[in-house]
Design a binder for these strands. Sequence first.
RNA 1: GCCCCUAUAGCUCAGUGGAUAGAGCACUGGUCUCCGGAACCAGAGGCGGAGGUUCGAUUCCUCCUAGGGGUACCA
Length: 569
Amino acid sequence: MRRMESFKGEIVTLLADATGLGADDVEGLLGTPPKQDMGDFAFPCFTLAKERKTNPAALANEFAGKLAPSGAVREIKAMGPYVNFFLEPATVAEDTLSRAFREDIDYGRSSDGQGDMIVIDFSSPNIAKPFNIGHIRSTAIGHALYNIFEFLGYECAGVNHLGDWGTQFGKLIAAFKHWGSWDDLAEKPIHKLLDLYVRFHKEAKENPALEEEGRAWFKKLEDGDPDARDIWQHFRDLSLAEFQRIYADLEINFDAYTGESFYEPMLGETVQFIKDKGLAKKSQGALIVDLEDYGMPPCLLEKADGATLYATRDLAALMFRAREYKFAQVLYVVGNEQSLHFKQLFKVIELLEFEWAPRCHHIPFGLIRFKDAKLSTREGNVIFLEEVLEKSKQLVRDIIREKNPDLEDADEVAHQVGVGAVVFNDLKSRRIKDVSFDWNELLNFDGRTGPYLQYTHARICSILRKHGEDVRADVDFTRLGEKAERALVTRVASFSQRIRNAARDYEPSLISEYLLDLAEEFNSYYANHRILLDDDADLRAARVLLADVVRMVLRNGLKLLGLQAPERM
RNA sequence: GCCCCUAUAGCUCAGUGGAUAGAGCACUGGUCUCCGGAACCAGAGGCGGAGGUUCGAUUCCUCCUAGGGGUACCA
């Protein structure tokens, strides 16, 4: 059983022989031509020509003359300054399609990770605040990375670092004591909590004593006062219940919900540890780690009043994770605006001489910004994720009612497609790019979208149902000679390399892009070639196999991104 | 001020230093006696500016411009 990589290996050996270069040098130069009819691999002769003081085209000719096709290589020819290699399409098709067909749901999987642990910190909303559209980014990207690394043989731990500690909870308790009740919180608790929070700030302007009250409540909370603790716990439970509804919608599970409060008991020893290492010092009344030598502002461990900060809790959390998980890598899927924070965090870890310091990575992403200013001001600059998901699902329901009124499980499918549209929208471009939030764009399911991929998948399922027989792998692969068929085979063959690249770059969009290209190629092929031929059983069998394998890759890829692949829609 | 990210078509985005810079949306015009029209085909439309490195730069480096973010007691 071979793969594209081993075809490449054959060519590297041939070229190393002909050019006298080392195999690594050849492999570095060997590339893929921009067009399919220019072959499967191309070797540029520019650099060598310069060294040998000849022109590249002449050199390419010379090499091509020396090389003889063998094995899977059918033809070798000079094309301008390149030597291009053409593989035997039937061989490539056979190797690729029979392997994919056999591996099915495991096609693309690997054991690269060898069970190494990767801790992924993602989503991490603040409790008592609504899950808004901005949270989709970390949630979708983190979840996709989790799936990708797991598919590559890593063991993953998804950690939801809830924002569940800090002065704001003292204020919230104070507000609750003044104006709230548990009955009142029974319905839409997070919205009610937000109202309380907003009211607190409004009234505190008139009545500064409230601020003091809030601080006092937080102090009580920290000191373990049973009443404060109980109220906080209720707030946390109510929030988590709402978040979990959304996570259920998105089919996301976390391995731990260890929020900031979890690390509260470890803060004292963390600060002491840093002091013992001689890194902490007093400055302007606060306790800091000076990072001036590294061109950064100081990392604050304690405020002048002795209270801890974000960085303190993150340091405690990171050290805890190192002990607990013995990770090969820890990934923080957090917005780009926190780059400095993580640079500081990792620098402190390095100065503490932890050997795992280089294995900590911040995976930044761009912000969601609003295109339509009116929308951003309404609702106080917040769009709730739940509202977005509901709108998307509703639109899918409408479309189904119009296009496929007899569909069974229409609600379930509307859910899968509606949620998929929103998630995919967030995973389709490089994560570092800002995402402009635009209802029209989000709810347009034409073109390069999640529903387009799901539609393509469902359409192939439909073809296979109509085919009516089991798909066979023992087909005549020489029949798959059409240009479009060869393009599809090549695309399928590169799936596993694409997943590796996505992991290497922590970039789920590489998979989105791949799937869109695959779906476009298939849809174009489908429009121009009949698959279920009545008069040519051999060709039909071969095309059915190809379609089935494309279906598998679409499904596997969608799963990696966290999308469902419905069989009808 | 300093630091980070970004700049490719009207809009949203692709583009390992290499062959004619590719898609989608929107727009215009087409495609069904045939496997799902959430589709397919076609048209029109583009590398922010100036240098540098290189046989070759959208890609690497420097500077400039524009947008976004950050920059000690928020997270």
